[in-house]
Nucleic acid binder design. Structure first.
Lengths: 333, 333
DNA sequence: CTGTTAGCGCTTTCAA
DNA sequence: TTGAAAGCGCTAACAG
């Protein structure tokens, strides 16, 4: 492949001039520019961004690290990030960690080695120490998305998880449910805790004792939802309603219930966090509390890019409100 | 940030030695290695991959370019690609083009500048010329996914679109439908044409004249499906069944129908290409022909990486079979 | 306006 | 087993 010297030779100028043309600098005589442009075309030159980033100390990459690429919650967020990045001429690259902290470490390491300019991450890590040394050393603008990492000095964009849980409990209690089961998220993730806390608070506020047996651990995946609901159904006195800590868990529940020949909402009421837009358009079924996903993406990207452009100062936290989308997965009791 | 010289100084060795340790080469005395490792740690050194790729001429990046990150069809494929890439220690980065050829051009250009090692792409381009010069110049192993680009010398992994269309028509005809509408995909995309061709063939095979008015242009997006179904419903004699060229179009149709107070399948039977796994688990509704998405991803990655490892030879084409998933969106007539 | 030249951070001969 | 030094392809003073 042609390099800048080939182009320079062909155009009869120095590499500096070619560089100027490539980077659209002024102070190149129109005629010279033309000759260079011609040479550029003839050689089929494609600049080596790795070389240039070596001197420029900029890659123009905004990296997004998310735990599950097949969860529409995250892909919608990415759209928001892309919108914002495009405006600043930054390229977005996406990396997936599969909710796997080890994989996440590798991915982050990789991105740091590539010297990406900024990082937006919904972390699968349970403790700050799993990734923070890497992050600090990199010294890259960092925005935490959806999930907080305590002690990590970084901007944070999240939703009001506690509030969301309360909305859900209030809704179910309003329908007359008293035994409300709760499937938690993945252990160690901040949203898992907040959502559970919100559930506990709201239960108490309704005078309902949240019995430990009603709370089962999940993993933010279908599998966890599936296993959790089996446990709940085995209870001497099973819940009449269940809250899943995210959309995928709810789907796991639905699948398990179907196998058992049970019907939602006839035999059990079900709600969860996070919408699945496509599904709800196919058939508006699942009642959920939704987050303003796209906006969360935009805001996260904004924060990251502001830092890049030199905004110093203390880390900021942006909290979004959740909204109840009532559909048909619950019944009065 | 520390560079290799800082480490070398701290360890009291030359940069060459440090480089050897970083890259896990042999012929480093155990003692020396230890000292270097120590210095590596103390400095918090993170190698600059851009610098190393300059000399190594390898980035260890497999790039995936897809037209719609929110379409589960594509995200599932990515999973397959990731599986395969992980085995070869390649990192996967994903870029989204929004079905926009211009954006796609920019994205590809960007990836070529970054000198990614291989490219898997479901192209939004309508003509080869839109992107091929770029691709050829880059000289990068290239695998086309789902969508063919005629004249582009590249491996191809796709499904039997014509066959899928036939399955769908046969199914509907079997239910007694004779006026079967067809919403095409985005103009200029290979799958759009193949699916339409399959529809036409199959209709004829059933002795049904595929009237032009029954064929409406879509765009592989919800919007297109929505607009198309409005047109079909305005027909003097509307179809009793409709085939959408992909999952998102079908969802657009469903939304439009709901607004009109129409019910599927009571008032209209609906089928489409490509499954939406999550949705079908929430409520198994839409009857579709599905492609073995995950496998398509793995195969695509395999082909790409084989080329990278020197496999020369003529371009290969892998064709997958489609499967009918019968659910509840159709009725007998 | 243009060219020369010294890096950017790392790898890779080549000698020792 | 180790180090010196010449690149990899580009940018950024600096001088002219």
């Amino acid at each position: 492949m042609a390099n800048i010297y080939d182009v320079a030779k062909k155009a009869g100028v120095s590499v500096a001039t070619v560089s100027r043309v490539i980077n659209n600098e002024k102070y190149v005589a129109p005629k010279t520019r033309e000759r260079v442009l011609k040479a550029l075309n003839e050689t089929g030159f494609i600049p080596n961004a790795n070389a240039s980033s070596l001197t420029k100390k900029r890659t123009n990459i905004l990296a997004v690290v998310i735990p599950d690429l097949t969860n529409p919650f995250f892909t919608e967020i990415i759209r928001g990030i892309e919108d914002q990045a495009a405006q600043r001429k930054m390229a977005v690259i996406v990396a997936n960690t599969d909710e796997n902290p080890t994989k996440e470490r590798r991915v982050i390491r990789f991105l740091m080695e590539k010297r990406v300019d900024a990082l937006v991450i919904a972390s699968a890590a349970r403790t700050t120490t799993e990734i923070s040394p890497l992050l600090y050393r990199g010294g890259v603008p960092l925005v935490l998305l959806d999930r907080q990492l305590k002690g990590l000095q970084a901007d944070l964009v999240r939703s009001d998880d506690k509030g969301g849980a309360k909305i859900l409990v209030n809704y179910l209690a309003g329908l007359g449910h008293r035994r409300i089961g709760f499937i938690t998220g993945k252990k160690g993730i901040s949203t898992t805790k907040s959502r559970l806390d919100g559930y506990l608070d709201a239960m108490k506020a309704h005078g309902l004792i949240p019995e430990p047996e009603l709370i089962v651990e999940g993993d933010f995946q279908q599998k966890g939802g599936r296993e959790a609901i089996f446990k709940l159904l085995e209870l001497p006195e099973p819940p009449t309603a269940v809250i899943a800590s995210n959309n995928l868990e709810a789907i796991g529940v639905l699948g398990a219930l179907r196998e058992k020949g049970m019907d939602v909402p006839r035999d059990l009421s079900l709600v969860c966090f996070d919408d699945i837009e496509l599904a709800s358009q196919v058939y508006p079924f699942l009642t959920v509390v939704a987050q303003p996903v796209r906006t969360m993406g935009t805001v996260a990207a904004q924060l990251a890019l502001e830092r890049l452009e030199g905004e110093a100062g203390k880390e900021r936290e942006v909290v979004m409100q959740m909204t109840l989308l009532e559909r048909k997965s619950c019944r009065k009791v």
